[in-house]
Deep mutational scan, measured.
Amino acid sequence: FHVTIHVGDITFHIHGVSEEEVKKLEELVRRGADWREIKKTIEEIEK
């Protein structure tokens, strides 16, 4: 999957994300995680 996440003024683009990881990111966004937490999760996914 290709994912784009907008957190305030920050936009993250992630490529090659599995469905499971998409759900993890959706959950973070849904519970209102700040951009640092989302960035950390994205960095883990990209490894």
Rank of each mutant, 00 (worst) to 15 (best):
Ile5Tyr: 01
Glu44Ser: 10
Lys39Glu: 13
Leu28Ile: 08
Asp9Glu: 11
Ile42Tyr: 02
Val3Thr: 06
Glu27Phe: 05
His15Phe: 14
His13Tyr: 06
Arg30Ser: 10
Ala33Trp: 00
Asp9Tyr: 09
Val17Ala: 09
Ile5Ala: 01
Val29Cys: 07
His13Leu: 03
Phe1Thr: 11
Ala33Arg: 02
Trp35Asn: 05
Asp34Phe: 02
Lys47Val: 12
Arg31Ser: 12
Glu44Asn: 07
Asp9Val: 04
His2Ala: 06
Ala33Leu: 03
Ser18Leu: 06
Arg30Phe: 07
Thr4Gln: 04
Leu25Asp: 00
Leu25Met: 04
Thr41Gln: 08
Ile42Ala: 03
Val7Asp: 05
Glu19Gly: 11
Glu37Gln: 04
Gly32Arg: 05
His15Ile: 07
Thr4Ser: 08
Ile14Asp: 00
His2Ser: 08
Trp35Met: 15
Lys24Gly: 05
Glu20Arg: 08
Leu25Trp: 02
Ile10Ser: 07
Phe1Met: 12
Val22Asp: 01
Glu46Met: 12
Val7Lys: 03
Arg31Val: 08
Val22Lys: 08
Lys40Met: 11
Val3Trp: 02
Arg36Gly: 15
Val22Glu: 02
Val3Gln: 03
His13Ile: 10
Thr4Met: 04
His2Cys: 10
Gly16Cys: 08
Val3Lys: 04
Lys23Pro: 01
Glu43Gly: 07
Thr11Gln: 06
Leu25Asn: 00
Ala33Phe: 01
Glu26Gly: 08
Arg30Lys: 14
Gly32Trp: 03
Ile5Met: 04
Glu21Asp: 15
Glu21Phe: 13
Ile38Arg: 00
Lys23Ala: 11
His13Val: 10
Lys39Asp: 06
Ile5Ser: 00
Leu25Thr: 00
Val29Trp: 07
Ile45Thr: 04
Gly16Trp: 11
His13Cys: 07
Thr4Lys: 03
His2Lys: 04
His13Asp: 06
Val29Glu: 04
Val22Asn: 05
Gly16Gln: 04
Trp35Glu: 13
Asp34Lys: 04
Gly8Asn: 08
His15Asn: 05
Arg36Asp: 15
Lys47Ile: 10
His13Thr: 08
Arg30Tyr: 05
Trp35Gly: 06
Val17Trp: 08
Val3Arg: 03
Ile14Thr: 03
Gly8Val: 02
Arg36Leu: 15
Ile45Ser: 04
Val17Glu: 03
Glu44Phe: 08
Val3Leu: 07
Ile5Lys: 00
Arg30Val: 10
Ile45Leu: 10
Arg36Ala: 13
Lys40Phe: 07
Val17Thr: 04
Ile5Gln: 00
Glu26Arg: 08
Glu44Cys: 03
Glu37Tyr: 01
Gly16Phe: 12
Thr41Gly: 07
Ala33Val: 08
Gly32Cys: 08
Phe12Arg: 02
Ile10Arg: 15
Glu46Cys: 13
Val3Ile: 11
Lys39Ala: 15
Lys23Thr: 11
Thr4Asn: 04
Asp34Gly: 07
Ile10Gln: 15
Val22Tyr: 14
Val7Ile: 13
Ile42Asp: 00
His2Thr: 15
Ala33Glu: 06
Val7Asn: 05
Asp34Tyr: 01
Val3Gly: 03
Ile42Gln: 01
Glu19Met: 13
Phe1Asn: 14
Lys47Cys: 09
His15Pro: 01
Asp9Met: 06
Ser18Glu: 06
Val3Met: 09
Gly8Pro: 01
Ile38Val: 09
Val17Cys: 07
Thr11Asn: 04
Thr4Trp: 03
Val17Gly: 04
Val7Ser: 07
His13Pro: 01
Glu19Leu: 14
Asp9Lys: 08
Lys40Cys: 07
Trp35Lys: 06
Lys47Leu: 12
Phe12Thr: 02
Val7Gly: 02
Lys40Ala: 13
Gly8Trp: 01
Gly16Ile: 14
Val7His: 10
His6Val: 14
Ile42Gly: 01
Val29Lys: 05
Thr41Asp: 02
Phe12Val: 12
Leu28Phe: 03
Val29Met: 13
Asp34Gln: 03
Phe1Glu: 10
Lys39Tyr: 13
Ser18Arg: 08
Glu26Ser: 09
Arg30Asp: 10
Ile14Lys: 01
Val7Pro: 00
Leu28Gly: 01
Ile42Asn: 00
Ile5Val: 08
Ile10Asn: 11
Lys23Tyr: 13
Leu25Ser: 00
Val17Phe: 15
Val22Met: 12
Ala33Gln: 03
Lys23Asn: 10
Trp35Val: 14
Ser18Phe: 05
Gly16Glu: 06
Glu46Arg: 10
Val17Pro: 06
Lys40Asp: 12
Phe12His: 03
Lys23Met: 13
Glu43Ile: 13
Asp34Cys: 05
Ala33Asp: 04
His6Phe: 06
Thr4Leu: 05
Ile45Glu: 01
Glu21Tyr: 12
Glu27Asp: 13
Glu37Arg: 00
Val29Tyr: 06
Ser18Tyr: 05
Trp35Ser: 11
Arg31Ile: 11
Gly8Lys: 03
Leu28Pro: 00
Glu27Tyr: 04
Ala33Asn: 03
Gly32Pro: 02
Glu21Thr: 14
Lys40His: 13
Ile38Gly: 00
Arg31Gly: 11
